[in-house]
Protein backbone atom coordinates (compact mmCIF):
# COMPACT_ATOMS: atom_id res chain seq x y z
CA UNK A 1 0.00 0.00 0.00
CA UNK A 2 1.43 3.37 -0.92
CA UNK A 3 0.71 6.02 1.60
CA UNK A 4 -0.82 8.47 1.53
CA UNK A 5 -2.87 7.63 -1.57
CA UNK A 6 -4.54 4.64 0.04
CA UNK A 7 -4.86 6.19 3.43
CA UNK A 8 -8.04 5.35 5.33
CA UNK A 9 -10.47 8.00 6.47
CA UNK A 10 -9.37 9.03 9.94
CA UNK A 11 -12.05 10.01 12.43
CA UNK A 12 -11.72 11.44 15.92
CA UNK A 13 -14.63 10.40 18.15
CA UNK A 14 -14.86 12.68 21.15
CA UNK A 15 -17.02 13.20 24.21
CA UNK A 16 -16.88 16.75 25.52
CA UNK A 17 -18.59 18.11 28.60
CA UNK A 18 -19.23 16.41 31.91
CA UNK A 19 -21.62 13.76 30.62
CA UNK A 20 -20.29 10.21 30.91
CA UNK A 21 -22.90 8.37 28.84
CA UNK A 22 -20.60 6.79 26.27
CA UNK A 23 -22.83 4.05 24.82
CA UNK A 24 -23.45 6.03 21.64
CA UNK A 25 -19.87 7.21 21.18
CA UNK A 26 -18.50 3.71 21.55
CA UNK A 27 -21.06 2.16 19.22
CA UNK A 28 -20.34 4.76 16.56
CA UNK A 29 -16.57 4.32 17.01
CA UNK A 30 -16.92 0.59 16.50
CA UNK A 31 -19.23 0.96 13.50
CA UNK A 32 -16.82 3.38 11.79
CA UNK A 33 -13.97 0.96 12.43
CA UNK A 34 -16.05 -1.93 11.07
CA UNK A 35 -16.59 0.24 7.97
CA UNK A 36 -12.84 0.42 7.46
CA UNK A 37 -12.10 3.82 8.96
CA UNK A 38 -9.36 4.58 11.43
CA UNK A 39 -10.90 5.77 14.67
CA UNK A 40 -9.27 7.61 17.52
CA UNK A 41 -11.50 7.77 20.59
CA UNK A 42 -10.57 10.52 23.04
CA UNK A 43 -12.27 9.11 26.09
CA UNK A 44 -14.49 11.13 28.39
CA UNK A 45 -14.67 14.77 29.42
CA UNK A 46 -12.49 16.42 26.86
CA UNK A 47 -12.47 20.19 26.63
CA UNK A 48 -12.94 21.78 23.18
CA UNK A 49 -9.25 22.71 23.29
CA UNK A 50 -8.20 19.10 23.96
CA UNK A 51 -10.43 17.86 21.15
CA UNK A 52 -9.07 20.29 18.58
CA UNK A 53 -5.52 19.63 19.63
CA UNK A 54 -6.11 15.88 19.24
CA UNK A 55 -7.57 16.57 15.80
CA UNK A 56 -4.43 18.45 14.79
CA UNK A 57 -2.12 15.84 16.22
CA UNK A 58 -3.94 12.89 14.69
CA UNK A 59 -4.44 14.62 11.32
CA UNK A 60 -8.05 13.49 11.11
CA UNK A 61 -10.49 13.97 8.28
CA UNK A 62 -13.56 14.10 10.47
CA UNK A 63 -14.55 14.69 14.08
CA UNK A 64 -17.59 13.00 15.59
CA UNK A 65 -18.83 14.58 18.80
CA UNK A 66 -21.23 12.75 21.11
CA UNK A 67 -23.15 14.86 23.58
CA UNK A 68 -26.24 14.03 25.58
CA UNK A 69 -26.19 16.56 28.39
CA UNK A 70 -27.85 19.52 26.71
CA UNK A 71 -24.65 21.55 26.65
CA UNK A 72 -24.30 21.27 22.85
CA UNK A 73 -25.12 24.93 22.14
CA UNK A 74 -22.21 26.00 24.34
CA UNK A 75 -19.66 23.38 23.36
CA UNK A 76 -20.06 22.83 19.60
CA UNK A 77 -19.71 26.43 18.42
CA UNK A 78 -16.52 26.64 20.45
CA UNK A 79 -15.08 23.51 18.86
CA UNK A 80 -15.97 24.86 15.41
CA UNK A 81 -14.30 28.16 16.19
CA UNK A 82 -11.14 26.52 17.53
CA UNK A 83 -11.00 24.38 14.39
CA UNK A 84 -11.09 27.49 12.22
CA UNK A 85 -8.35 29.09 14.32
CA UNK A 86 -6.25 25.96 13.91
CA UNK A 87 -6.75 26.14 10.15
CA UNK A 88 -8.82 22.95 10.13
CA UNK A 89 -11.82 24.41 8.30
CA UNK A 90 -11.81 21.40 6.00
CA UNK A 91 -12.17 18.85 8.79
CA UNK A 92 -15.71 17.49 8.80
CA UNK A 93 -17.47 18.15 12.11
CA UNK A 94 -20.52 16.01 12.93
CA UNK A 95 -22.44 15.53 16.15
CA UNK A 96 -24.75 12.92 17.59
CA UNK A 97 -26.87 12.98 20.72
CA UNK A 98 -29.95 14.43 22.28
CA UNK A 99 -30.30 17.56 20.20
CA UNK A 100 -33.75 19.05 19.67
CA UNK A 101 -34.84 20.12 16.18
CA UNK A 102 -34.81 23.80 17.03
CA UNK A 103 -31.11 23.71 17.89
CA UNK A 104 -30.10 22.12 14.58
CA UNK A 105 -30.05 25.25 12.35
CA UNK A 106 -27.91 27.15 14.87
CA UNK A 107 -25.40 24.30 15.10
CA UNK A 108 -25.19 24.02 11.31
CA UNK A 109 -24.62 27.73 11.05
CA UNK A 110 -21.81 27.40 13.58
CA UNK A 111 -20.06 24.90 11.34
CA UNK A 112 -21.49 21.49 12.21
CA UNK A 113 -21.98 19.53 9.00
CA UNK A 114 -24.54 17.05 10.29
CA UNK A 115 -26.57 16.45 13.43
CA UNK A 116 -27.51 12.82 14.14
CA UNK A 117 -30.48 12.75 16.48
CA UNK A 118 -31.73 9.82 18.58
CA UNK A 119 -32.62 6.84 16.43
CA UNK A 120 -30.03 7.58 13.71
CA UNK A 121 -28.45 4.44 12.28
CA UNK A 122 -24.70 3.84 12.25
CA UNK A 123 -25.08 3.13 8.53
CA UNK A 124 -26.27 6.70 7.93
CA UNK A 125 -23.34 8.07 9.92
CA UNK A 126 -20.83 5.98 7.97
CA UNK A 127 -22.36 7.02 4.64
CA UNK A 128 -22.40 10.69 5.56
CA UNK A 129 -18.77 10.73 6.62
CA UNK A 130 -17.66 8.81 3.53
CA UNK A 131 -19.42 11.16 1.18
CA UNK A 132 -18.54 14.41 2.92
CA UNK A 133 -14.91 14.21 4.06
CA UNK A 134 -12.63 16.70 2.37
CA UNK A 135 -12.29 15.91 -1.33
CA UNK A 136 -8.50 15.98 -1.18
CA UNK A 137 -8.61 13.06 1.22
CA UNK A 138 -6.85 10.39 -0.76
CA UNK A 139 -8.91 7.33 -1.38
CA UNK A 140 -11.95 8.78 0.36
CA UNK A 141 -13.69 5.46 0.06
CA UNK A 142 -12.54 3.46 3.03
CA UNK A 143 -11.14 0.04 2.32
CA UNK A 144 -13.08 -2.85 3.75
CA UNK A 145 -10.29 -4.55 5.58
Amino acid sequence: MTAPMNRHIRVLVAKPGLDGHDRGAKIVARALRDAGMEVIYTGLRQTPEQIVSAAVQEDVDAIGISILSGAHNTILPRIAELLRHAGLDDVLLVVGGIIPDEDVPGLKQAGVAAVFQPGASTGDIVDFIRSHVRPETPNAVASDE
Partner: peptide, 22 residues
Amino acid sequence: DLPTLMGYDSDHPFAEGEVGRC
Protein backbone atom coordinates in the same frame (compact mmCIF):
# COMPACT_ATOMS: atom_id res chain seq x y z
CA ASP B 1 -27.12 18.37 37.44
CA LEU B 2 -23.84 17.18 35.96
CA PRO B 3 -21.58 19.70 37.70
CA THR B 4 -22.99 18.58 41.08
CA LEU B 5 -22.66 14.90 40.11
CA MET B 6 -19.03 15.51 39.18
CA GLY B 7 -18.22 17.53 42.30
CA TYR B 8 -17.99 20.99 40.68
CA ASP B 9 -19.79 24.11 41.86
CA SER B 10 -22.09 25.98 39.50
CA ASP B 11 -19.45 28.69 38.99
CA HIS B 12 -16.66 26.31 37.98
CA PRO B 13 -15.47 26.72 34.35
CA PHE B 14 -16.33 23.04 33.64
CA ALA B 15 -19.93 23.78 34.65
CA GLU B 16 -20.48 26.17 31.77
CA GLY B 17 -23.54 25.19 29.79
CA GLU B 18 -24.42 22.35 32.18
CA VAL B 19 -25.90 24.12 35.24
CA GLY B 20 -29.41 22.88 35.97
CA ARG B 21 -29.68 21.02 32.65
CA CYS B 22 -29.81 17.36 33.65
